[in-house]
Structures are given as structure tokens and as C-alpha cells.
């Protein structure tokens, strides 16, 4: 029923554009800051990207890498090493350990030095996994533009798989939890002359699912291959929680061989910082489509700068659905 707002907005717009006069006004440019971005996991070495913030009136093209900074890594407040720059990142040789505190300090002697701290997210055990298969009948109508009529409904059937993943929260930590699902999808080539399929390998593909949880779930993208519904542990602190996800059966079927592919179930622990960052970024993106929305500040834990230094860890189980 949002249409009801269109008219007042239209009238307001008409009124303002009819009477308005547009005048440039001066805006003071703020002092630039270091932007520190690093999301670490227990699966790879720590790497940090540093860029320079730009003025509000400047082009995105003005974003510049900071390649000459001194970047220091601390573990539990003990200096570990000076990180080395290569190809846009400052690298460490250290793979983070869960439950450990990491601090990064960066200084390029031009902008204000920045500092950020995070705790490497703990891992959570998957307590139980269940699934059920259901065939859902759905009705659809179609509209004939020629006769301008809705025609008889078409019955469509989808086979769906409901996945239940039970976890227990560690009351000592302040993490959030995310469920991601993936399947190894076979890759085929079809060589002549008979063009019969030949399997040449697999690709791990993240599967989108419909979350059935009524709790405050947030759809989160950590990167292009890691996305799913996440929930902060303050909703079930110290208790168990069951993720409930619905996927289409075709997402895990190999129709060429008429087999089912294993489903990889990942429970991703997000550090509190990372959860705040991704949820605030989601809100920021949503608000950018709504001109009347209150502006959103993207969460940052970087002192004297912008960006995010946060962590996640992953535990994976697999399930073969028959």
C-alpha cells in the first residue's frame, strides 16, 4: 500500500520544483583519513588494505591506495611483525587463532595514524542437522495481453528441501552466527561428434535459500561466495538455536547423472564487529534507494579512520540428501 504515499510525495515534489531555486553553496572539505579494511579468518594469513578517504565532492576515481605506510600487527597486545606491502595489501605471515585478540596500527606520516582491534571469532559445533523433502504445488495465473484476460491457472510443482541446523551459543562470546549452504556443481563439456556430456570437474557454488526463521535474521554478504542469513547471539545467548532453511531440490541435483550432490553446510561465526559492519552496510544500501530515509552510518572500529577490521571462522559439515 505504499502507493498511498506517492501522491503526497508527488505533490510535494511538484510544489518544491515549481517554486524552488537551486543555488550552489560552499561546503568545507574535511581532513582526509586512512581507510583500513581487513576481514580475517582462521583459513588464511592476515592482509590489510589501506586507502585514503576522499572529499564529499570528489570523484570516486580519486580513491588512492596507501602503499607507503608502516603497518604493525599485534597479537594479544604483543608486537608480532611489520606487515609487507604487495599488490594492494599489507600481508602478514600469521594465520589467526580463534579467541585471540589482534590489533593493527597503520601510519603513513601524512594522515592521522589509525588503529583497530578485533577478536578472532570462535568456532561453533553443529549439534544436529535434519532435513525433509516436500513437494509444493503452486498456482499461477497468466495474463493474455492480446485479449487482456487472466486465463486459467497453471499448476506448477516444486520439490523443496527443508534443512534444520541446530547450534549452541557459547555464552562467553559475543559473536553472531550465519548459515551458508553450498554444493559442488559438476562441470560438463559436450564434445562432438555425439555431444554426450563429459564431467570435467566440480565448482563449489553457494546456494541461496529462503530462511524460515522468524527471529531477527539478517541476510549478510561477507564476500561473493559467502552469504546467508545471520543472527546475533543476544537473541539466544547461551542457548541452542536452529537455523531453518528452504532450498529448491534442483539446486543439489545432477540431472545428467540423476544423482544428488552433497550439500555443504557452513556455520560461520562472525565477530561482533563484522556483524555490526555488515548489518549497518545493508541498512546503508537500503537507505540509498529511499530519499526520505534517515542517513545510516556504516559501523567502523577503526580509530581515527574508516573501514573495518573484523573476523569470521567457519565450521563445515556435509549432508547427502536422498
Amino acid at each position: 500500500m505504499k502507493n498511498k504515499y506517492l501522491i503526497p510525495l508527488f505533490l510535494l515534489f511538484a510544489l518544491i520544483t515549481a517554486c524552488s531555486e537551486v543555488i550552489d553553496i560552499k561546503v568545507d572539505e574535511k581532513e582526509k583519513n586512512i581507510v583500513l579494511n581487513s576481514v580475517i579468518s582462521d583459513q588464511e594469513e592476515i592482509k590489510v588494505n589501506l586507502t585514503k578517504s576522499i572529499g564529499i565532492l570528489e570523484s570516486d576515481k580519486k580513491v588512492a591506495l596507501i602503499e607507503d605506510a608502516t603497518v604493525e600487527l599485534f597479537e594479544n597486545d604483543i608486537f608480532i611483525e611489520k606487515m609487507n606491502y604487495a599488490n594492494g595489501y599489507y600481508f602478514s605471515s600469521l594465520i589467526p587463532q580463534t579467541g585471540t585478540k589482534y590489533t593493527i596500527k597503520a601510519n603513513n606520516n601524512v594522515l592521522k595514524p589509525v588503529e583497530a582491534t578485533t577478536y578472532m571469532a570462535n568456532k561453533t559445533n553443529i549439534k544436529r542437522i535434519n532435513y525433509s523433502i516436500d513437494s509444493t504445488w503452486r498456482t499461477e495465473q497468466w495474463y493474455d495481453t492480446l485479449t487482456q484476460t487472466f486465463y486459467d491457472t497453471i499448476i506448477v510443482s516444486y520439490e523443496e528441501v527443508k534443512i534444520l541446523v541446530e547450534i549452541t551459543d557459547n555464552p562467553q562470546t559475543n559473536d553472531a552466527y550465519m548459515l551458508t549452504l553450498a554444493a559442488k556443481r559438476p562441470n560438463y563439456v559436450y564434445p562432438p561428434p555425439d555431444y554426450l556430456p563429459v564431467k570435467v570437474g566440480d565448482t563449489l557454488v553457494t546456494i541461496y535459500y529462503n530462511s524460515l526463521n522468524k527471529e531477527a535474521m539478517e541476510w549478510v554478504n561477507i564476500n561473493q561466495n559467502m552469504y546467508g542469513g545471520a543472527i546475533a547471539d543476544n537473541f539466544f545467548s547461551g542457548q541452542t538455536f536452529t537455523f531453518s532453511a528452504l532450498i529448491y531440490a534442483w539446486d543439489i541435483k545432477d540431472y545428467q547423472n540423476n544423482t544428488t550432490m552433497p550439500l555443504y553446510i557452513n556455520i560461520v561465526n562472525l565477530s561482533d564487529d563484522l556483524y555490526k559492519y555488515v548489518t549497518s552496510k545493508n541498512k546503508y544500501d537500503e537507505a540509498s534507494y529511499n530519499p526520505l530515509a534517515e542517513p545510516v552510518n556504516i559501523f567502523s572500529n577503526v580509530k581515527n579512520g574508516f573501514g573495518i577490521f573484523a573476523s569470521y571462522s567457519v565450521i563445515t559439515d556435509s549432508l547427502l540428501i536422498k
Binding site: 574535511k30 582526509k32 583519513n33 581507510v35 579494511n37 581487513s38 576481514v39 588494505n49 586507502t51 578517504s53 576522499i54 572529499g55 564529499i56 570528489e58 570516486d60 580513491v63 599488490n87 594492494g88 554478504n221 564476500n223 559492519y277 552496510k281 546503508y284 542517513p295 545510516v296 552510518n297 556504516i298 574508516f306 573501514g307 573495518i308
Partner: peptide
């Protein structure tokens, strides 16, 4: 007040991908 490159756009920025390199605003 300022704009900055968000974490998720760092890879695109480094790889000179035309899309997905926009900055975010800081209020």
C-alpha cells in the same frame, strides 16, 4: 562529510573492475 572505499569493494578496486567500486559516505 567524507567518502571511503568499503571493504566489499576492495577486490574490485584492486582489479580495476568498472562496477562495484563505488565509495560509501561517512556522516
Amino acid at each position: 562529510e567524507q567518502r571511503f572505499l568499503p571493504y566489499e569493494n576492495v577486490e574490485n578496486y584492486l582489479n580495476n573492475v568498472e562496477w562495484g567500486t563505488s565509495t560509501s559516505e561517512y556522516y
